[in-house]
Design a protein around this nucleic acid. Structure first.
Length: 414
DNA sequence: TGTCCACTGGAAGGGAGGGCTT
DNA sequence: AAGCCCTCCCTTCCAGTGGACA
């Protein structure tokens, strides 16, 4: 491309481009001035948290609903307004937002909370009890209200199979006479409550807030609101907007998904130098969004999961039917020895297969063959081509893609 | 009706890699 | 440096299981 051509692209982007006026409005972390169809939840959450302004303790709250139903943005929205109000009136309200799935462990969640209060803590090494002490001391010395948002709180409980963190957090106020802590738990698993200790549940679930999936019409309103400012006038076809809403509504009313589709559709049109964004662009966007998700997940897989996935791939291309755990494990061991890698045990592989299943990369189903035992039937859940291209950069694994394990077709499936 | 297969999945624990306090 | 305590990733052990078969 000539330097002039490149210059032109940059200029176009700087002037907002032919398609977009401001594409950032279509990102899901963008905070709009209003949140359509969530007035009820905003009011409820606002009234639960309002006492914080006068330093009174607030009830803990538990918000649940599926992904993209506005839980996170509503919470952030209300906290943001609350903090502004507090500032106007010279009151101190500290807030912290932690995504428990990203944080990963109890330790890291509390460490994040400590840091939000200005307490410097190491990323590992301390006893959890010690961290709690530090958190308590920080709260005590600040004498402020501390509102904590624990997003994807279910990940924490399920992973560590231990809700002591939540128990301690909800009880921390009992031993404080200066500041206090209010917990807002967010979960997209509606059955999450079943995992909780009744004591935690009664304390955390003092208030409950439910986020229903958006309907297609509601999504349309949300998208229209943002699209009007995000796109240049007259660029976006109304049919494209309707299709985005309908597709996302089909996927449990996910606003995040709808915004992604719209943004990617715009970008596809922009790159093709189209003057209008039509339904066809949304269809292409849908494919691209899915492809990107798979590629991202695949490229973040650790070595053994990669070898395992290649084993499934080999079996599937050799047989055209689903394989069982034992067969997959055998091929996996073969590949490991070809790559001079120490294989993991079958128990561990069984766990990895479950993980791949949850991610949607394979489909695994427990079946019984009666006299011939009980096992998992395993099929690849993504396009073989996607696996090959995602692993293309991995020298070690790329060799295994070409490697033909011995005795594959002769080994009959049942 | 009992047996038996090929696993599944829970539980416990080891050890590597890390940091803290004394 | 020693003694703790943490997480992460893994192994070992083993009870449990659905359903075809004798």
């Amino acid at each position: 491309m000539s330097q002039q051509g490149l210059d032109l692209i940059f200029e176009q982007i700087l002037s907002g481009g032919l398609v977009f006026r401001d594409r950032n409005l279509l990102r899901h972390d963008y905070m709009p001035a209003t949140l359509p169809h969530r007035e009820e939840q905003i009011r409820r959450l606002g009234s639960v948290l309002a006492p914080a302004l006068s330093r009174e303790r607030v009830s803990n709250l538990f918000a649940y609903g599926k992904t993209g139903t506005g839980k996170t943005i509503v919470t952030r929205f209300v906290l943001d307004r609350l903090q502004r109000k507090a500032k106007d009136h010279g009151r101190a309200v500290d807030t912290s937002y932690v995504n428990c799935r990203l944080a990963g462990t109890n330790y890291r969640v509390i460490a994040d909370l400590c840091r939000a209060l200005g307490e410097d803590v190491p990323f590992t090494g301390l006893a959890v009890g010690e961290l709690f002490d530090r958190l308590r001391n920080a709260l005590q010395s600040r004498e402020s209200a501390f509102l904590v948002v624990l997003d994807e709180i279910d990940a924490l409980v399920k992973r560590s199979d231990d809700d002591s963190l939540l128990y301690e957090l909800t009880r921390i106020n009992e031993r404080l006479d200066g500041g206090w802590i209010g917990v807002i738990g967010i979960s997209n698993d509606l059955h999450f409550k079943d995992f909780l200790d009744p004591r935690v549940l009664s304390s955390l679930g003092e208030e409950e807030l439910v986020f229903k999936p958006y309907s297609s019409e509601e999504l349309y309103d949300i998208l229209k609101d943002r699209a009007e400012q995000a796109f240049q006038e007259g660029v976006l076809d109304d049919g494209a907007l309707r299709l985005c809403s309908a597709l996302a509504a089909g996927e449990h009313g996910d606003a995040r998904r709808a915004l992604d589709l719209l943004r990617v559709a715009g970008e596809i049109g922009e790159r093709a130098k189209e003057e209008r964004i039509l339904e066809s662009h949304v269809r292409m966007a849908q494919q691209k969004v899915e492809h990107d998700r798979v590629t991202e997940v695949l490229s973040s897989l650790p070595l053994h999961s990669r070898i395992l996935l290649i084993s499934v791939l080999h079996l599937e291309s050799a047989r055209k039917e689903s394989s069982v755990t034992g067969d997959v494990y055998e091929v996996y061991r073969g590949l490991c020895s070809a790559a001079a890698v120490e294989p993991l045990t079958q128990r561990r592989i069984s766990g990895l297969l479950n993980e791949l299943d949850i991610m949607g990369i394979i489909n695994a189903r427990v079946v019984s063959f009666g006299r011939y035992g009980r096992t998992k039937k395993i099929r690849l859940g993504v396009e073989p081509q996607a696996v090959k291209s995602a692993f293309g950069n991995d020298e070690l694994v790329r060799g295994l893609l070409e490697y033909a394990p011995r005795g594959l077709p002769g080994h009959q499936g049942r």
